[in-house]
Amino acid sequence: MSARELKALLDGLKPSKALILCHHNADPDAVCSAIALGELLHSLCPGIEVTCYAAQGVSKVSKGILERFGFSFSREARPADADILFMVDTNNVEQLEELKEEVKVRAREVPLVVIDHHAKHPATEEIASLYIVDDSASSTCEIILRLFEELGLEVGKGVAEALFLGIAYDTRHLALAGASTFLAIAKLVEAGAKPRELFPLLTVEMDYSERVARLKACMRAKVYKFGSWLVAFSHVSAFQASAARALLSLGADLAVVAGEREGRLRVSMRATSKFASATGIHLGRDLARPLGQLIGGMGGGHALSAGANGVGKPEEAIEHTIALLSRLLGTKGKELK
């Protein structure tokens, strides 16, 4: 089992410094996974120094959660100083932004452990010493809970609260939760997590710049019809994921929003459950991953939400996505005027 492999690795290595890395703009699942993993490491390796870092910081929702726990992510990270590296809720090094090259180099010298619930990425498999992944899990927090259980470690109230928040966020307040996830939630409630107190932490008022980005994405949107499916494409320089969700809420079956800032290209995708189940298309595996290669970067994610990072212009990324969709759906997209 993955838990035994992790313990064997730690027992043999006896690390004194661990670095836990999250993807850019880390969401609550990533942040709360890091918090809980840090506690797990302290239990298994007394005296270990744990640093948590998110490329380009954490999301607005995550900031509120960190304040609630009185926990701080480091403002800088030095992979070269760590005896062991962890990547949580992050399936490729491109998501580490400015640290990606340092992590690649350090992963040749010390173990890199990846704990994730996204589909495996081939490039990550090449550099990971231990890859703990279950893409059927609701969240990375759910996988961390299993590690606690398999290792026989007590889940304290603080860890229970963190894991609850991560799971609740990634399941849209449990709307997407299955039976195994509800069992996990029950265990966390028994350990001290109080849903009534925690759910409000996942809701924050949308700020002005995000609202503007959403509205601009709607104004710029181009809608294509692939058979009976409506796919919306747009571009904004920030808040691509939020903009994609907005387009989905307006009636798109699939929304793709690209944006370029400071030489970096980002693409976010969101699909309805109906689109994914009827077409069999897994956004992370079938669309984001090949798109990442086409734009000189990496991509991945879930069946209903995914993203890709690379270089180039948003228009080029959208053209690539239209071509990929045409092949996947077996029909050429027609723009609606």
Results as ranks from 00 to 15, higher is better:
223 V>P: 06
226 F>K: 00
188 L>M: 05
229 W>P: 13
166 G>Y: 06
251 G>H: 04
199 F>Y: 05
187 K>C: 05
231 V>D: 00
230 L>C: 00
236 V>S: 04
219 M>P: 08
228 S>L: 07
225 K>H: 13
164 F>Q: 03
136 S>H: 05
221 A>Q: 05
210 E>Y: 07
200 P>C: 10
222 K>T: 12
245 R>W: 07
151 L>K: 10
178 G>P: 12
206 M>F: 03
215 L>S: 14
141 C>F: 12
246 A>H: 13
221 A>T: 07
192 G>V: 04
249 S>T: 04
153 L>H: 10
174 L>K: 07
242 S>N: 00
214 R>C: 09
233 F>T: 06
222 K>R: 15
210 E>W: 05
211 R>V: 11
198 L>Y: 04
177 A>N: 00
191 A>I: 10
251 G>S: 11
205 E>S: 11
179 A>F: 13
188 L>V: 03
237 S>P: 01
230 L>W: 08
182 F>C: 08
189 V>C: 05
169 Y>A: 12
221 A>Y: 09
183 L>T: 12
175 A>E: 14
236 V>I: 05
186 A>I: 06
140 T>N: 04
219 M>G: 12
225 K>N: 12
241 A>W: 03
143 I>P: 03
211 R>I: 11
142 E>Q: 13
186 A>E: 05
172 R>L: 14
224 Y>D: 06
244 A>R: 09
177 A>C: 09
212 V>E: 13
213 A>K: 02
149 E>S: 14
206 M>E: 14
179 A>M: 13
186 A>L: 02
191 A>W: 11
144 I>C: 00
138 S>D: 13
235 H>V: 11
234 S>D: 04
219 M>R: 14
196 R>V: 14
230 L>P: 03
243 A>N: 08
178 G>F: 07
228 S>V: 15
174 L>H: 04
257 V>Y: 05
216 K>D: 12
214 R>Y: 09
151 L>G: 01
248 L>K: 09
140 T>W: 09
254 L>K: 01
153 L>Y: 11
216 K>L: 10
216 K>R: 11
225 K>S: 15
223 V>G: 09
193 A>G: 02
171 T>G: 09
146 R>L: 11
173 H>G: 12
240 Q>D: 05
193 A>W: 10
182 F>K: 12
228 S>E: 12
145 L>Q: 15
199 F>A: 02
245 R>I: 07
235 H>S: 15
258 A>C: 03
163 L>E: 08
218 C>E: 15
195 P>S: 02
238 A>G: 03
169 Y>E: 01
254 L>E: 03
142 E>T: 03
256 V>K: 00
253 D>K: 08
245 R>V: 06
237 S>H: 02
137 A>W: 10
229 W>R: 02
201 L>H: 04
209 S>T: 11
227 G>K: 02
237 S>A: 13
140 T>S: 10
209 S>N: 01
147 L>C: 05
253 D>H: 04
223 V>K: 01
184 A>V: 09
140 T>G: 08
150 E>R: 15
211 R>T: 10
